[in-house]
């Protein structure tokens, strides 16, 4: 017997600031949720690849979040997933077509990973986990922030791997920004013989691992600072009972 109600879950009452913080840092899709690892690791070899995929994902994420939020009260629960996938697929196709039109070479390099945005867990995850229960404005903010969070990590990985793997930065930006960007390439280490490990996927794993470790270190420091501030305050008269937490 189940008395569980099937009414839609109540909207989460996050202030906008919280949504921003979640997307960029606290609940970063790449560093914390570890979603979308396949494209994250596969196309973060250079900055331009990372930027290309990052922007595409960002656009699709914003679009799908807004669209899902718009229809959230009109779609039957039972068919919501196919509906969401349809929406995401449409936006992905749009992004793919735009890329073909304006950055065809980059599109060729990124290859299958652009259509594969459809199956990127981040996008479906945000549609199902956030946009389905929130207003259009909040979904827009969430999509943007999650997208930027993902793109940020993608770019960071791209920078690390491009510098270590090839000794350059911003090579091949003309693929995206046209001939004007040919000179953007910045040779950091001249006569660098490639460090293939960083270029190959294992290097991406190691680099991502280090980024996650770095985030944990920063969070720990922050926590310690807060804790210290609390400890330094004079003892409050109110006693707090803590149960069930042994670490």
């Amino acid at each position: 017997m189940s008395i569980e109600s099937h009414s839609p879950a109540p909207a989460v009452q996050n202030p906008t600031q919280d949504i921003i913080k979640d997307g960029l840092w606290r609940n970063n899709p790449a560093l914390v949720q570890l979603l979308g690892l396949c494209p994250l690791l596969a196309v973060s070899g250079t900055v331009v690849n990372a930027l290309g995929l990052g922007i595409a994902t960002l656009l699709v994420l914003i679009g799908s979040n807004v669209a899902v939020s718009l229809i959230r009260n009109h779609v039957q629960d039972t068919v919501r997933l196919p509906a969401f996938v349809m929406i995401i697929a449409s936006f992905t196709t749009t992004a793919e077509l735009i890329m073909q039109a304006y950055a065809f070479e980059l599109y060729q390099i990124l290859g299958i990973f652009i259509p594969l945005i459809v199956t990127n867990c981040i996008i479906l995850g945000r549609a199902e986990g956030f946009a389905r229960k929130n207003t259009v404005w909040r979904s827009l903010v969430d999509g943007t922030m999650m997208g930027i969070g993902f793109m940020g990590i993608l770019l960071l990985l791209g920078i690390i791997r491009e510098v270590i793997g090839q000794g350059t930065l911003f090579a091949g930006m003309e693929l995206m920004f046209g001939p004007a960007a040919v000179n953007w390439k910045w040779v950091i280490i001249p006569d660098y013989s490639q460090f293939l490990f960083a270029v190959l996927p294992p290097g991406a794993f190691v680099a991502l691992g280090l980024l996650i470790a770095g985030k944990n270190v920063i969070d720990d420091r922050q926590k310690q600072r807060v804790q210290k501030a609390v400890d330094d305050q004079p003892a409050l008269s109110r006693r707090v009972r803590v149960t069930g937490h042994i670490h």
Partner: peptide, 10 residues
């Protein structure tokens, strides 16, 4: 293995 796959030439 790391240096072998990273620097095949040398």
């Amino acid at each position: 293995a790391l240096v072998l796959i990273s620097f095949p030439l040398p």
